[in-house]
């Protein structure tokens, strides 16, 4: 019984991390239609930034925020000066983001070497809480709580604020949005940076739990991809539900069929593609 509960808690924690990773991916891929193949690289780079900041004695939350800001800056620069010029051209966008993914991976290997890094869980988040005779590790619960808070914040941002309305307008009809005075290209840079920041933030949150190592980038990218295909592109609710489905499948699959755990992750994606191509919460695009 307690084994299943532990697995469930781990699943929620991983689901939370996956949401932070894929929320940005969903916005960039779903709303802006940019195939951002460096999203996993943002996650890994963010985690490495976090590891370095933490080793300098920076407070955990400051490290996570700082890493998010640094990665957002990098993402924003790439979007503003390179991706922007390739608007609407899928193949060049793929090459550019893939090229940066390879460069970032290699630079990380150069700076942080091939050894895995696992920063300790921050002191004030160590230990476990006891509920009804069962112990839950605090850190996992914190990841979940942070993910839920960010999910609500994003939902409010996109659906309820003026900025969100401007983003949606910019996505639906860029020329008209420009005509009514919305600076669409600035907004897109902002959204791209936000996505990069969320991925990096997730990387730091995940570091004490998953550790950081070379190749993490291309391990996380397909996960973000299946979450978004599963939930429906551009849907935050879809990303949230998709993340938890994948979180559960990963942990329970790992426990029950260790050889096939990785493959099982993709089964719901295949089912969705066959039965409901727009994703669980996606809109049908005409």
């Amino acid at each position: 019984m307690s084994l299943w509960l532990t697995l469930a808690v781990n699943s929620f924690a991983l689901g939370g991390l996956l949401f932070l990773l894929s929320a940005g991916f969903s916005l960039i891929f779903g709303l802006m239609r940019i195939p951002n193949l460096m999203h996993g690289s943002f996650f890994m780079l963010g985690a490495y930034f976090g590891v370095t900041l933490l080793s300098q004695g920076v407070n955990f939350w400051l490290a996570a925020l700082g890493s998010g800001l640094l990665t957002a800056l990098l993402g924003g620069l790439i979007e503003r000066f390179l991706l922007r010029r390739l608007e609407g051209q899928v193949l060049p966008q793929v090459l550019l983001t893939l090229g940066f993914a390879f460069i970032i991976g290699d630079v990380c290997l150069m700076i942080w070497t091939g050894d895995p890094w696992q920063p300790p869980t921050p002191a004030h988040l160590q230990g476990a809480v006891q509920v009804a005779g069962l112990f839950f590790p605090i850190y996992r619960l914190v990841i979940l709580a942070v993910a839920v808070v960010i999910a609500v914040a994003l939902w409010i941002l996109v659906d309820w604020t003026r900025l969100g309305a401007m983003i949606r307008a910019g996505v639906d009809d860029p020329p008209i949005a420009r005509v009514v005075g919305i600076r669409v290209s600035q907004l897109f840079t902002l959204v791209f940076s936000l996505g990069a920041a969320l991925a990096a933030f997730a990387g730091v949150m995940g570091a004490p739990y998953l550790s950081v190592y070379p190749g993490l980038d291309f391990e996380m990218l397909p996960l973000a991809l299946i979450v978004v295909i599963l939930g429906g592109t551009g849907s935050l609710l879809g990303a949230l539900v998709g993340s938890f489905i994948i979180g559960f499948l990963y942990n329970f699959g790992q426990a029950m069929f260790p050889d096939l755990a990785y493959v099982i992750l993709f089964l719901p994606m295949l089912l969705v593609l066959v039965l409901r191509p727009q994703g669980l919460f996606g809109k049908v695009v005409a």
């Binding site: 899928v90 397909p222 493959v263 993709f266």
Partner: peptide, 19 residues
């Protein structure tokens, strides 16, 4: 592109993890 990428990763997963 994204679907072919995902299927490719499944096959990678089989080659790497299904020891």
């Amino acid at each position: 592109l994204m679907i072919t990428l995902a299927i490719g990763q499944i096959l990678w997963g089989i080659a790497y993890r299904w020891a």
